[in-house]
Structure formats: C-alpha cells, structure tokens
Amino acid sequence: MSPLVPDNSMNNTKSTLFILRSTPYQGHRALEGIEAVLAASVFEQPLGVLFIGDGVWQLKKQQQAEQIERRNLAALLSSFPLYDIESVYVDESSLEGKHLHSNDLLLPVSTLSAAGMAELVANHDTVLTF
C-alpha cells in the first residue's frame, strides 16, 4: 500500500472537483465531504469545490450546530482560505430556489449558471460527489 504522506509518486497530480450536495446535518455526508476536500488540499492537489442543491445550506451563516450536539460545519468551511482553497463555486439556481443570497453565505463564492457548471466539470480530471 502507498504511504500516508505525499511523496514523489504524487507528481502526476490531477485536478479534482468536489461537488457538495448534501444537507449540512442530515447524517455525516456533508462533514465527510468537507473532510475529503481538506485532505486533498493538504496533499496540494489542484481542486475546486462546487455547492449545489441542498449542499448550499452548508454555507449558510449563523449555524448553531451545538444546539443539536454536532460539530459546526461552518467552522470547518471557514478554514478553507487557510488551506488555500479558493476555487469555491455555488450553483446560482440552487441559491435562488432557497431564497438565499451570496451575503447569506459564510465564504466568498463565485456563482455559476448551468453552463458555467458544465464547463467547471469539464475542466477537472476527476469529480467526487458528497
């Protein structure tokens, strides 16, 4: 099995698009998706993150996860800039459908149309969905 730490064999880097589409606190899917994004960034892989559908709720400001005794996803997501994760995108129509605006969100994001998302997917080597 390969080593746990990055090594030269990772020189053949691949760009990965993480599509996060799960509600923040229904199970651990959202949490485990965010953890995968953070892991990829530690290995210095080029990556993008796209929030679509119910996944946009993960970005909502003023989450009070302590009220349901859960880890606050907002704290993890707020650490994205510290990990140099800056290519963060949100599906425009998912935001609109939930009556959310970019100033309701806890990270600076780029909103994308359907065509923009198709281009984003096409521009990455691998897509992982959570």
Partner: peptide, 11 residues
Amino acid sequence: GLGQLIDANCH
C-alpha cells in the same frame, strides 16, 4: 486515511 483516496486519484 483520506490520503489514500487522493493517492488513488493520482494513480
């Protein structure tokens, strides 16, 4: 760890 997933992606 998740590093094994990233490694798998690379290879």
